[in-house]
Amino acid sequence: MTGLSATDPDQQVFDEHRNLLFSVAYRLLGSAADAEDAVQDAWFKWSAADRSQVADPKAYLTRIVSNLALERLRSTRRKRETYVGPWLPEPIVTDGGPAEAAVDAESVSMGMLVVLETLSPLERAVFVLKEVFDFSHAEIAEAVERSEAAVRQAAHRAREHVRARRPRFAADRSRQREVTERFFAATTGGDVNALMELLSPDVTLWTDGGGKVRQALRPVVGAATVAGWFAAIGTVTYQDVEPADMQAELVQINGGAGIVFRGPERVIATVTFDFDADGRITALHNVANPDKLQAVTDGTTYAIGTR
C-alpha cells in the first residue's frame, strides 16, 4: 500500500491475504476497478481496527471486504439498470495457474460472472463465499451479517439459479484452448467457413460498448451472423482503426483463453468464450467499452485463486 513501510507487520498480514480479498471482491462486483477500491477500503478499516481482538485475520478481512463489496454492488446495480446495451463484466488478464486451478478459473469466467449478475446481492455474496471459497454457512452469516438460516436459504436459491443457467458439461480446457486458437486464426484470416465450423448453430454474441463506442445493442444470434461479424474484422475499419493497424493476440482472460484486439495506441476490445461439451462455441462476450479495458491496457495480471 502506498506510503507504508514494507516491514510494517500489519501491512504484511494484509498483503498475505490481498489476492484472496481481490478474488472475493472481483467475483462479487465483476469490476476490477471496483474490487481494487474495495480492497483499498478494507485496508483502511484493517489499519484502524483493534487487531489485538482479531483471532483470525483471514476471516476478519474477508468479512470486511465482503461487506464493502456488497455495499458497492447494491449501488452499482442501480446504475446498470440504465446501461446502454448489454452490461458485461470488466475483463482481467489472469496468471494461467496450474491445471488444478480449473475450478477457480471457471468461477471467474465471463460466462459465470454474467450469470452471477442475475442474482440478488445477498445471493451472489453467499454463492461466491460458499461455492467458490468454501466458507461455512456460519462464517458466511457473520460475514454478511445475516442469520445462518437466511444464508442457507440464499445459498439454496443461488445454487439452483446458477445450475439452471450454466451448462452442466463443458469441453476440457485443452480443447477450449485449441478451439480458441482456431477461432483466432480464422478471425485474423477472415475465414467464414472455418468460423462456422467452430460455432454452435445457436451461438450468441454479446457486445458491450456502454454507449461509448458503437456496438450491437442486442445479442447477435446464429452461427452465420456471428461468423460474418468476426470475419469482417480484418477487412473493415473498426473504432477508427484501419485493418492494417489492427493487432490481435491470444491472452488468458478470466481464467480461459481469450483474444485482445489492439490499435496503435489502445486496447480496442477483448473477446472470451463459452463452450459446449463438444468444444463448440456457444457464447462470445465482446467487451469494447474503453472504461472497462483499463486493467488489460495496463498489463496488470491477477491471481484468481481461492486461498
Score class of each variant (00 low, 15 high):
134 D>R: 13
130 K>S: 13
152 R>L: 00
118 T>G: 07
136 S>H: 02
160 E>W: 06
143 A>N: 08
158 A>G: 03
115 V>H: 05
148 E>T: 15
158 A>M: 00
164 A>G: 08
170 A>I: 15
177 R>P: 03
128 V>F: 08
115 V>S: 02
127 F>M: 01
132 V>W: 02
181 E>T: 14
141 A>N: 05
174 S>R: 14
118 T>N: 02
191 D>P: 03
144 V>S: 06
169 F>H: 15
168 R>I: 10
178 E>I: 11
127 F>K: 00
169 F>A: 14
133 F>W: 04
170 A>Y: 09
150 A>S: 15
145 E>K: 15
174 S>E: 13
121 P>W: 09
154 A>V: 01
172 D>N: 14
130 K>M: 09
115 V>K: 01
148 E>D: 07
181 E>L: 13
188 T>L: 12
131 E>H: 08
136 S>I: 04
191 D>N: 14
190 G>H: 06
180 T>H: 01
156 H>V: 04
169 F>M: 12
185 A>R: 13
184 F>L: 04
179 V>M: 06
139 E>D: 14
157 R>M: 00
136 S>G: 04
144 V>W: 09
116 L>H: 08
150 A>E: 13
131 E>Y: 05
185 A>P: 02
180 T>S: 05
190 G>E: 03
142 E>V: 13
157 R>E: 00
140 I>C: 02
169 F>N: 10
136 S>R: 03
158 A>F: 04
189 G>T: 10
122 L>W: 10
180 T>V: 13
160 E>H: 07
120 S>D: 10
125 A>S: 15
180 T>C: 05
175 R>S: 11
188 T>Y: 08
122 L>Q: 11
189 G>F: 07
138 A>W: 09
184 F>H: 11
188 T>H: 07
141 A>E: 01
135 F>R: 13
